[in-house]
């Protein structure tokens, strides 16, 4: 829910366990307590998509039996796989552009235990028209970071489990060429297209590919996106890494982004997410300002984590059992 600074501060003082997303100027004013936070002024609220620096988006973590809060740098971020509870939802926030976020993005898919440790989260950001530092907050200590990840481990009752899922409007056409990379990187030069080595930037230009369409990889029917940040002369910058040994294709063109996003949202039926966040690219390209996306409300983010880093995706989790 989107509420005022006073209302949020009161909830913290009551000892409630909170996940908070807001502009940095508001997060700085919060009292210490059982909360973690990240910066963004973009939200999907009960009233619709909104840009605001006046209110905070607060999610109460009332489903956990016990919580622990911690922060990690780039050298130990994968300790989250070992330090979580056995039956746990790990909520993770990392600052946009930070080394810890880049490390997590590049290496998470190769972490053996990744899929056994439900991890949901987001990349904190800033006002795109007045770029500042993306930050995360450990509310317990009152610390903020631009270079560390903050985590809330949420222990679930034994008879319950967490189900992480996503809404992605992109798929591929299996007749399209297969693109492969031989690195796990956010900046790429070469790739192979149907086995032939080419410069990726030149390939995008030569084929007239719309760079607002992400690369997609098919993971047994679940499509994961890698969005294009910038096509330079010889290099392509990405919002999430490409990975070696993964087959990519460019997503099939979507004629009406906003309509297709809402259609995918409505396909979800009766969901009861306890937490969700949506990508800033969906917010912008889907014209979501003022549009309701219920029951999927939460921060609008600079990257989403559903086990690994995602792009142009709404991620959410439900507690089942």
């Amino acid at each position: 829910m989107l509420i005022t600074l006073e209302e949020t501060s009161a909830m913290i003082r009551q000892g409630r366990t909170l996940h908070i997303a807001a502009d940095d100027a508001l997060l700085q004013q919060l009292p210490k307590g059982r909360w973690i936070g990240g910066t963004t002024p973009y939200f999907s609220s009960e009233e619709g998509g909104i840009f605001t620096k006046e209110k905070l988006f607060v999610t109460e973590i009332d489903f956990a039996e016990e919580i622990r809060i911690a922060s990690y740098g780039k050298y130990n971020v994968f300790q989250i796989m070992e330090e979580c509870y056995d039956n746990c939802l790990t909520l993770l926030i990392m600052p946009y552009g930070s080394e810890v976020a880049n490390k997590y993005a590049k290496e998470a898919p190769e972490v053996e235990e990744l899929l056994m440790r439900p991890t949901l989260g987001w990349i904190s950001g800033f006002d795109l028209n007045a770029p500042g530092a993306a930050k995360v907050y450990n509310g317990e200590t009152g610390e903020s970071f631009t270079d560390r990840a903050v985590v809330m481990y949420c222990r679930l009752p034994k008879e319950q489990t967490v189900l992480i899922n996503m809404i992605n409007l992109f798929t591929d056409d299996k007749a399209d060429p297969v693109i492969r990379f031989d690195v796990n990187e956010l900046e790429v030069t070469d790739c192979t297209v149907d086995g032939v080595k080419v410069n990726f930037a030149e390939y995008i230009r030569q084929k007239g590919i719309d760079p607002s369409m992400p690369l997609v990889s098919d993971h047994n029917g679940s499509y994961l996106n890698t969005s294009i940040r910038e096509v330079r002369e010889k290099e392509v910058s990405l919002y999430a890494p490409v990975y070696r040994n993964i087959e990519y294709r460019f997503a099939s063109h979507v004629d009406d982004y906003a309509a297709e996003f809402m259609r995918r949202l409505n396909e979800q039926g009766q969901r009861k997410p306890v937490f969700s966040c949506n990508c800033i690219l969906n917010f912008q390209l889907g014209n979501l300002e003022g549009k309701k996306t219920l029951p999927f409300i939460g921060p609008v983010t600079f990257g989403e984590v559903a086990y690994q880093l995602m792009n142009q995706t709404l991620v959410y989790c439900e507690i089942v059992g």
């Binding site: 899929l115 439900p118 992480i164 899922n165 996503m166 098919d218 993971h219 047994n220 679940s222």
Partner: peptide, 9 residues
């Protein structure tokens, strides 16, 4: 289940 699909893949 997203995680199950990722694991199968």
């Amino acid at each position: 289940n997203l995680a199950f699909n990722m694991l199968i893949s």
